[in-house]
Design a protein around this nucleic acid. Structure first.
Length: 283
DNA sequence: GTCCAGGCTCTTT
DNA sequence: AAAGAGCATGGA
C-alpha cells in the first residue's frame, strides 16, 4: 500500500519501540505484544506480511493523516522545518500499554541498544515462542500473569540491574488490579499519569512515554536528557527549569505536542548517530 | 579508568 | 520546595 509521510526504518529507529530486527533480505521483523509481521518498503510501497494486518495498521498509525499534523507543527516554530527534513517519516506508534510500562521502566538511566537487549531477554525468559525466522525463535511479550513467578534475582540475571524491583512492583500492581489498564484508557491524561506514577520506578518521564506510546495520549511532552538539551539550545530560555519545559512546549505546540516531541527526539538521536558514524570513519 | 544513557528514589538542606 | 547522591550495566 502507498502511504504518505511514512518511513519504516525511521519509525522503528525512533526509540519508541524495541522489538524489531532487520533481516538479511532487508525486511524488518516487528513484534508487538503477541503479534508479529514482516515489513518492507519498495518503491514507495509499504508491504505488510502478517496474519493480523488490522493490528499492524493500527500499530503503525496508518489511518492517521500526518501531512496535516506535520504541516501544523512546522508552523509553530522556525526550527521545526529543519527538524522535519530529517524526521518526516516517523509516526506515533500505538503500542500495548503493559509492554510500554515495562519497556520504559527499563529505559530509565539507560540507552536504546541496551533497552532493546533487556526487553528481548525478558521476552525470551517469560514469553511464548510465536515465530521462527532464519532459524531463530521469537517470543511474545509476557503478560503480567506469565511473569508471576519472576523473582528479583532472576530478573537481575537478565541484566535489568536496579530496575528489578520496579518490574516486580509493576507486575504486582497490574496483576492485582490495583492499577487497571482498561481504566487508564478512559482517564484523562493527568489522572492516568498519576495512576501510572504509583508504580515504583515510574516517574513523570516514564509515565509520559507510556501515555504517548501505549495509551494514545498526544498531549504529553516527555523530557529526557536529549529533549532537555535541544530545548534549551533552540526553543526555551537556557535557564528555564526542567519541569517548566513541558508548559513551554504546550504554549508552542498545543495539544499536538506529543507529535512534536517525537519529531524533535528523533532528530536528536539521528544527529547523534551520524556523529558517531563520522567519528568512526575518521579512524 | 571515566563518562553516559528516552530517570527514579531517597536523603539532606 | 529544591538540590544531590546513588543506582546496575555495558559501550564509547
Amino acid at each position: 500500500m502507498k502511504i504518505n509521510q511514512f518511513n519504516l526504518q525511521d519509525v522503528l529507529d525512533s526509540g519508541q519501540t524495541f522489538r524489531y530486527e532487520r533481516l538479511k533480505d532487508g525486511r524488518y521483523l516487528v513484534l508487538s505484544k503477541d503479534q508479529y509481521g514482516l515489513f518492507s518498503e519498495q518503491k514507495g510501497e509499504f508491504i505488510m506480511e502478517t496474519e493480523n494486518e488490522a493490528y499492524f495498521k493500527h500499530f503503525f498509525d496508518l489511518e492517521n493523516d500526518y501531512t496535516t499534523i506535520s504541516k501544523e507543527i512546522i508552523k509553530k516554530h522556525e526550527k521545526m522545518k529543519e527538524i522535519l527534513k530529517y524526521t518526516n517519516g516517523i509516526r506515533l506508534l500505538k503500542q500495548d500499554t503493559w509492554e510500554m510500562i515495562l519497556s520504559f521502566i527499563l529505559s530509565s538511566n539507560n540507552n536504546i541498544p541496551r533497552i532493546k537487549g533487556l526487553v528481548k531477554n525478558i521476552c525470551e525468559k517469560y514469553g511464548q515462542k510465536i515465530v521462527s525466522v532464519d532459524q531463530k525463535d521469537y517470543f511474545s511479550f509476557p503478560t503480567p500473569e506469565e511473569m508471576k513467578k519472576a523473582t528479583l534475582s532472576e530478573l537481575r540475571s537478565l541484566g535489568v540491574g536496579f530496575r528489578d524491583q520496579y518490574i516486580i512492583d509493576a507486575r504486582d500492581k497490574i496483576r492485582s488490579q490495583e492499577i487497571s489498564i482498561e481504566d487508564l484508557r478512559d482517564m484523562g491524561t493527568q489522572d492516568a499519569r498519576l495512576e501510572l506514577m504509583k508504580i515504583k520506578g515510574v516517574g513523570k518521564k516514564v509515565a509520559d512515554c507510556v501515555l504517548l506510546f501505549g495509551l494514545n495520549k498526544t498531549d504529553v511532552f516527555p523530557v529526557d536528557v536529549w529533549i532537555e538539551r535541544i530545548m534549551r539550545d533552540w526553543f526555551v530560555p537556557e535557564d528555564l527549569k526542567k519541569n517548566e519545559i513541558e508548559t513551554y512546549a504546550f504554549k508552542m505546540f498545543g495539544e499536538q505536542m506529543g507529535y512534536a516531541q517525537q519529531y524533535i527526539f528523533y532528530y536528536c538521536i539521528t544527529k547523534y548517530r551520524e556523529d558517531l558514524k563520522n567519528r568512526s570513519s575518521q579512524l
